[in-house]
């Protein structure tokens, strides 16, 4: 678009409006970060101050030293790593639904969509009993398994895979490539953008996972960050700053991941045929 002076003024106005909106949106996050550096006494002060008057790192030290947050962090990363396996399974499913005609496709895909409509609270106890029967309670695999695949993500994969030209696949078949080989050497490289999106979504979900780690783990050694944080969230420890520090510890890494990968994320959605 040609940038006339009027257009440029409008762009600046939009930029200012967006910046104000961004500040308001991110304010609770900013508040959390700043409060995490306040001593306990200051956090309870009224009227509140935005900036910590006597900034301290004591709460972060407490988290790591006293509350085993180092271990929770490792567990969280392990859960995220396992859930990345789900990406591959969902990509395969998306490809299958997008590029093959087969008996039962319609109702299977309907099932995929239907699972999006089931509230988690509903399925918690049956799911737990299933995992228990599979002897997977108290394992990291058991924590990751119930959320390994999701209808929403399979749907996104399918949308993306539909945009891959059939000719490419046919050409590879004529060259004698096997189906699995086509998937691995042609489809997966083409699907990098959607993998990027899904990786970030998976990371967010795994990072914040609370319910399953809590229920499946019979051993504190398997707790994740979210569960660790909720251990603090109780009446016996009225220390808002400590809680804020724990919360910040959870959000900041996600923020960094997003800032690094955001270009790929937007691109991935763009190419996923969601237009």
């Amino acid at each position: 678009m040609n940038a006339s002076p009027a257009q440029r003024t409008l762009t600046i106005m939009v930029a200012v409006a967006l910046a104000i909106g961004a500040l308001i949106t991110a304010f609770p996050f900013l508040w959390m970060l700043l409060a995490s550096f306040k001593p306990q006494r200051e956090a309870l002060d009224f009227p509140p101050t935005l900036l910590p008057l006597a900034p301290t790192l004591e709460h972060y030290v407490t988290l790591f030293v006293q509350l085993d947050f180092g271990r929770y962090l490792v567990n969280t990363l392990l859960v995220v790593a396992i859930s990345f396996l789900g990406l591959l399974i969902m990509a395969m499913a998306g490809y299958g639904f997008a590029k093959f005609e087969f008996r039962g496709r319609r109702w299977m895909f309907f099932l995929v969509l239907a699972t999006m409509m089931i509230p988690v609270q509903v399925t918690m106890i049956p799911t737990f009993l299933i995992l228990n029967a599979m002897k997977l309670t108290n394992t990291l695999a058991g924590i990751a398994l119930p959320t390994l695949v999701s209808g929403f993500n399979i749907f996104l994969f399918r949308q993306f895979m539909s945009t891959i030209p059939d000719e490419m696949i046919e050409a590879a078949r004529l060259d004698g490539a096997g189906e699995m080989r086509i998937f691995v050497s042609i489809i997966v490289p083409l699907a990098v953008p959607i993998f990027a999106v899904q990786a970030v979504l998976t990371f967010i979900a795994g990072w914040n996972s609370f319910l399953w780690p809590l229920i499946i783990a019979n051993d504190q050694k398997l707790y994740t960050l979210s569960v660790g944080l909720s251990l603090l969230n109780q009446q016996l420890a009225v220390n808002p700053s400590l809680q804020m520090a724990a919360a910040a510890l959870m959000v900041v890494p996600m923020f960094v991941v997003f800032v690094i990968f955001q270009r790929h994320i937007v691109q991935g959605f763009t190419l996923s045929g969601l237009k």
Partner: peptide, 24 residues
């Protein structure tokens, strides 16, 4: 072996342990 259970989640934790018989 000690496991700390968050107060907020006592109900879920105890219920699932009763359901499976896999309690402490």
């Amino acid at each position: 072996e000690t496991v700390a259970i968050p107060w907020d989640a006592v109900d879920e934790k105890l219920t699932t342990s009763v359901a499976s018989g896999q309690g402490p």
